[in-house]
Amino acid sequence: MPQQVQGVIARAKGQPVSVETVVVPDPGPGEAVVRVQSCGVCHTDLHYREGGINDEFPFLLGHEAAGIVESVGDGVVDIAPGDFVVLNWRAVCGRCRACRKGKPWYCFDTHNAAQPMTLADGTPLSPALGIGAFIEKTLVHSGQCTKVDPEVSPAAVGLLGCGVMAGLGAALNTGAVSRGDSVAVIGCGGVGDAAIAGARLAGATTIIAVDVDPRKLEWAKGFGATHTVDATAADSVAAIRDLTGGFGADVVIEAVGRPETWKQAFYARDLAGTVVLVGVPTPDLRIELPMIDLFSRGGALKSSWYGDCLPARDFPYLVDLYRQGRIDLDAFVSETIGVGDVEQAFDRMHSGDVLRSVVVF
Rank of each mutant, 00 (worst) to 15 (best):
2 P>N: 13
347 D>Q: 13
270 D>F: 01
326 R>T: 09
28 G>Y: 06
38 S>W: 05
279 G>H: 13
123 T>Q: 02
274 T>G: 01
40 G>P: 04
42 C>A: 09
74 D>T: 06
131 I>Y: 07
2 P>A: 15
42 C>V: 02
207 I>T: 03
310 L>G: 00
209 A>T: 05
263 K>L: 15
53 I>M: 09
238 A>R: 12
258 R>E: 11
352 G>C: 03
147 K>A: 14
311 P>S: 15
212 V>A: 15
338 G>D: 10
29 P>L: 01
360 V>F: 05
273 G>P: 00
127 P>T: 13
277 L>H: 10
76 V>W: 04
190 G>Y: 03
313 R>H: 12
301 L>V: 11
214 P>G: 13
168 L>M: 09
180 G>N: 03
150 P>C: 11
2 P>L: 03
324 Q>C: 06
28 G>M: 06
333 V>A: 07
36 V>D: 01
63 H>E: 01
216 K>E: 04
283 P>H: 15
40 G>T: 06
21 T>C: 00
293 D>K: 07
178 S>F: 01
220 A>D: 01
35 R>M: 07
205 T>P: 00
226 T>S: 06
38 S>D: 08
143 G>P: 03
179 R>F: 15
81 P>L: 14
342 V>T: 10
302 K>M: 10
55 D>T: 08
39 C>W: 05
135 I>R: 00
317 Y>K: 14
327 I>R: 01
332 F>K: 02
113 A>C: 05
146 T>I: 15
319 V>F: 07
358 V>F: 03
137 K>E: 11
59 F>Y: 12
344 Q>H: 07
348 R>H: 04
189 G>I: 06
353 D>R: 15
184 A>Q: 13
55 D>Q: 11
255 A>C: 08
301 L>I: 14
106 Y>G: 03
262 W>V: 02
223 F>P: 00
347 D>E: 14
238 A>N: 05
239 A>T: 06
223 F>H: 03
154 P>V: 08
311 P>W: 13
19 V>I: 02
230 D>R: 06
23 V>K: 07
290 P>H: 14
57 F>R: 01
155 A>S: 12
21 T>V: 02
145 C>V: 06
220 A>V: 00
112 N>H: 15
274 T>D: 11
69 V>Q: 02
232 T>D: 10
114 A>S: 13
119 L>S: 08
310 L>M: 09
15 Q>N: 08
68 I>W: 01
74 D>A: 15
182 S>Q: 08
325 G>D: 13
17 V>E: 08
73 G>K: 07
328 D>R: 10
37 Q>F: 07
113 A>K: 13
212 V>Y: 09
208 I>M: 11
166 A>W: 05
341 D>C: 00
176 A>F: 04
